[in-house]
Design a binder for these strands. Structure first.
Lengths: 317, 317
DNA sequence: TCAGTTTGTGAGTAATTGCCCATGAGCGAA
DNA sequence: TTCGCTCATGGGCAATTACTCACAAACTGA
């Protein structure tokens, strides 16, 4: 307990130091003497505040180029929502930028006064976005997971998107106590008949907005790395034309769901209708190009958050 | 024209550099080579982005102490809205912190989907807050000025709060084409009978929220510095018990409007009812202590944005 | 209680950033 | 055209910040 109190006190100090540094614009030396600590400690508190995401930075300027690319994307693919962030040529991160932009968009939806149903998929990109969310109280909304959050080994949670979200956002949460892939369509149907799952499935059809990651395929794709699919099966699917995956649902190069056995074993909630729901895909980077392009062509998503370089590729394709 | 295009391009570059620096976390050296400019130019772009307020920093952590003080303020003075920001002991600025917090609160109101009427007073503090607002489009709202924006010399605008706001926020604006103080109550009544002023007065009664500065009195008070009152008159008023001023309305140490001639010459819109409107006062610092305390005691305001040190004083009083 | 581990601290140092200055390009007026 | 003005540029240097290391305090699990 003492430990916990201390930790909170420390974060409090970090927040105070971060405030003095970023908002009040003081130097770390000044902060140190104001707070009665050494310069080094002040520096640590400031960087702790950044590391703990106490300090949020946002850019309030419509970069002309990003707007243009966004407009072009909107008309080419018939999108409802587009957000293009600047590219960072030197970075290999697949989430930087779109995580922040995704969080900002999620926040915008959650700030609405009228109750909404917000659906989330899973994956590294979405997790990174959720991690950027500030603490919020939104008892009026409901948040549901489109995909199961049980790992292939049956144990831990697989990219714990919905639970991370529950930490940050106080609202009713509806997880999916299932794996992404099960062994047969019969097993899936059995699991889906559970009343708990039934209500989540129903909620999925009512979603106002959904945020999903775009999964690329390949032997080093998330589904393989996380052990849901073995490399052999992955290769077979790719030979059958599989190009990408959203919430586990496999689709081909034209964004049509694969008609093989694989999708019958996907235990996720069906993607909400793009007629009634804004389904926003988050993805950037070369490895996602093909999967994202196919998803856009097939209108599996009607919103996208990506970066300049990816947008250029998609427009040229 | 070429100049203007160039300026826009420069801001665009500044935004990009600022993004790379603050969001992507690159060094200015890296930004320089990525953008093909010298390190110094990169530094200039980053600081330009800050100077032009393209970069917004916010602190997302409830500092325990500020929350406690806020709760105590709320119950002691029966307030609807309280926001306490950390104090910066070394700074003499009377706006730092509360300007940012005020802007955030104004933004929250303006983000509402349902149409509201937002009223603003005037003064240095409020101006600093408005300057922190991002560009917004809110055609559903109406924004009105509670005080005249004509200087005592009849010419330029006096702390151009409503016009600065119009620059940032696209909504219908209703200024008050009057001075704060006129020479007699007859003149005021005459001016108030103009139809333009009439509609603004009416709007004032409908305001959902009002943001006002708290004016202290004294020979170096804003009203004197800006030439509305000469020092002699100010001294006389203070002898009569005047303690503070909101939108020009003078009140005594218990927060009751002065019954002398002075308030009959104030051409401002009457303060909206605290029964139906959230009237938020922004002020901090020793010089404002007495005026703020009186305003709170008399329930002239039912919301406050201030800093820790001021809150401590108010609670101890 | 005690060894092992984690966590915070201060010192020193390398890296990064902020600022001043001299220079030169661009532009409008004479 | 030329002068004068403004403003962006890059260099250099001082200030500021980030990182590494060694050590001490607190905590954990026998």
């Amino acid at each position: 307990m003492a430990k916990r109190t201390e930790t909170v006190g420390r974060l409090d100090d970090a927040a105070r130091a971060g405030w003095l540094y970023y908002v009040a614009g003081r130097t770390q030396d000044e902060i140190a003497s104001a707070m009665g600590i050494s310069r080094q400690s002040a520096q640590r508190l400031v960087s702790l505040a950044v590391a703990e995401r106490l300090i949020k930075v946002r850019l309030d300027h419509p970069i002309a180029e990003c707007l243009e690319l966004g407009e072009a994307m909107r008309s080419k693919f018939g999108l409802t929502h587009v957000d293009i962030v600047p590219s960072d040529p030197g970075s290999s991160s697949t989430t930087i930028g779109i995580a922040e932009a995704g969080a900002a968009e999620i926040e915008r939806w959650l700030k609405k006064a009228d109750p909404i149903v917000l659906a989330v998929g899973t994956g590294r990109t979405l997790k990174a976005a959720i991690d950027q969310l500030p603490a919020m109280e939104c008892p009026q909304h409901r948040i549901m997971s489109l995909t199961g959050n049980i790992g292939p080994d049956g144990s831990a949670a697989y990219y714990n998107v919905i639970f991370s979200m529950a930490d940050a956002v106080k609202a009713r949460h509806y997880p999916m106590p299932l794996p992404v892939l099960v062994s047969s369509s019969e097993e899936r149907d059995l699991l889906h008949r559970q009343s708990l799952v039934q209500s989540t499935l129903k909620l999925g059809r009512e979603a106002d907005v959904a945020f999903v990651g775009i999964g690329e395929l390949g032997v080093d794709a998330p589904l393989c790395l996380d052990g849901f699919l073995d490399p052999d099966e992955m290769m077979r699917l790719m030979e059958e034309g599989a190009t990408g995956e959203i919430c586990g649902w496999m689709y081909d190069g034209d964004g049509r769901l694969l008609e093989g056995s694989i999708n019958e074993r996907v235990a996720s909630v069906p993607l909400p209708s793009r007629e009634t729901t804004t389904v926003i895909g988050l993805a950037k980077g070369k490895r996602k190009y093909a999967a994202l392009l196919a998803a856009l062509r097939g209108h599996m998503i009607n919103g996208v958050i990506t970066d300049e370089a990816t947008a250029r590729y998609l427009l040229a394709a």
